[in-house]
């Protein structure tokens, strides 16, 4: 088991070094024809996505279009019923069980998740830990980073998201905006290859949205690879390298922000944008 991870780790490193000269094309995450049903209702009807280093891909669409479900399939919080997933060129294997399709190897999934960090709509900071403990938890216990290093890193991350003074606070003592910035710091502590954002500002009061968006924007500047689901259209237009418009479980239109917002070709997308 451990061996698999080690070899994966090696593969990961060698892949990273090989592609250093061709940064443009380095594929970090690739999903092919992802399908998902809830009961008999298909919610994802074969969606594909490729995230290269430095890409910022935003998924837009009305509620029920499947964008959040798709994002959750990317780190297997939802098990896709069909399609393939590749992280750093490593394919995630699936097997068929009595309860449907499931990943072949739990350790493989755990490794993948440690490379793909997620920021949730409801923050989901662990309620029984202080902000600081939240941030060092996974680096210490999952990545095996030494305590002193993890704490050092955590302090610098808190500094960066503007929460240095709040490190000893519990989540319930923080505002929504502070919790979400803390959650972003927690995701960054893993040094992830790809960051997933699931409607990171939807649960926030309007006046707190700005701070969170500013932090995400700063991540773009350091070249992070991100996949976002958001309703903030102006923000999506500003930061994204690519926009995917989802409708009823399918990709209706893909393009650069200027294409999507400037010259939407499908009637549905035009209608969607006009109601915003």
């Amino acid at each position: 088991m451990i061996k698999i991870i080690e070899t994966l780790g090696v593969a990961n490193k060698s892949l990273a070094s090989e592609s250093r000269d061709s940064v443009e094309s380095e594929t970090l995450l690739k999903a092919t024809k992802i399908e998902k049903n809830f009961g008999n209702t298909p919610v994802l009807k074969g969606i594909s996505l490729t995230a290269n280093r430095g890409d910022i891909i935003t998924l837009i669409g009305s509620s029920g279009s499947g964008k959040s479900t798709f994002l959750r399939c990317l780190n297997l919080l939802e098990q896709p019923d069909g399609g393939e997933l590749e992280v750093h060129g490593q394919k995630i294997g699936f097997k068929n069980t009595r309860h449907g399709r499931a990943p072949e190897n739990d350790r493989h999934v755990q490794w993948m998740r440690s490379r793909v960090a997620m920021v949730f709509q409801n923050f989901n900071l662990w309620a029984h830990m202080t902000l600081l403990e939240n941030i060092v938890e996974a680096p210490i216990h999952v990545l095996g980073v030494s305590k002193s290093k993890a704490y050092e890193h955590a302090h610098s991350l808190l500094e960066r998201v503007g929460l240095a003074e709040r490190s000893e606070h519990y989540p319930s003592q923080l505002s929504g905006g502070q919790q979400q910035r803390g959650a972003i710091a927690r995701a960054l502590a893993m040094n992830p290859d790809v960051m997933l954002f699931d409607e990171p500002t939807s649960a926030l009061d309007p006046e707190l949205v700005g701070d969170v968006l500013r932090v995400i924007r700063s991540l773009k500047e350091e070249g992070r690879t991100m996949i976002l689901v958001t309703h903030e259209m102006q923000f999506a237009e500003d930061v994204s390298t690519k926009i995917m418009y989802l409708n009823q479980g399918k990709v209706e239109e893909v393009g650069t922000p200027s294409q999507i917002f400037g010259h939407p070709s499908s009637a549905r997308l035009r209608q969607f944008l006009s109601t915003r």
Partner: peptide, 20 residues
């Protein structure tokens, strides 16, 4: 969500149980 956040960090089942 608390458990999901732990899973999303790559924690194993036993680690999720023990720590979260």
């Amino acid at each position: 969500g608390q458990v999901e956040a732990a899973a999303a960090c790559g924690m194993s089942r036993s680690l999720i149980f023990r720590r979260v």
